[in-house]
């Protein structure tokens, strides 16, 4: 397998991981709405994932940059910028006191991210298969 093959294999796994994180977020939010979890516990739980998720995604994007995968880089750059901006303005963490006011926003954001990771997942898969085919030829 070539570099591109390995890279996209890693990207597929990474996207799957990010995908599951988002699913977890969404489940937690609906748990909050159904009163299965209190906002303090919810925020404590989710906040442990916020930075790792952003860092992991940024790392993946960095790999694309280093390996010159311009399309993949182009797809991921906006999300990196978005995460960066949120971290800079110190609004990346979930705030237990405000969570009910902002819940619909958070849910929307998580759903969009979910869709984004899903698309990425298939794109990486496609690229990986492409890489494998070109290799076997």
């Amino acid at each position: 397998m070539t570099g591109a093959g390995w890279l996209f294999l890693f990207a597929v796994i990474a996207a799957a991981g990010l995908l599951f994180t988002m699913v977890f977020f969404i489940i937690m939010f609906s748990d909050l709405e159904c009163d299965y979890i209190n906002p303090i516990d919810l925020c404590n739980k989710l906040n442990t994932f916020v930075l790792p998720e952003a860092l992991f995604h940024a790392f993946l994007t960095l790999l694309f940059l280093l390996s010159g995968q311009w399309i993949a880089l182009f797809i991921n750059a906006p999300l990196v910028a978005f995460n960066l901006q949120k971290i800079q303005s110190n609004s990346h963490m979930y705030d237990a006191t405000e969570i009910f006011r902002t819940l619909s926003q958070h849910k929307k954001e998580s759903f969009i991210k979910l869709g984004f990771y899903l698309l990425c997942f298939f794109y990486y898969l496609y690229r990986m298969i492409l890489a494998l085919i070109s290799e076997s030829e």
Binding site: L32, D35, P39
Partner: peptide
């Protein structure tokens, strides 16, 4: 929505 000096613990 709730306003005032309270902590909203659930919907």
């Amino acid at each position: 929505q709730y306003h005032g000096n309270v902590f909203t613990r659930s919907t």
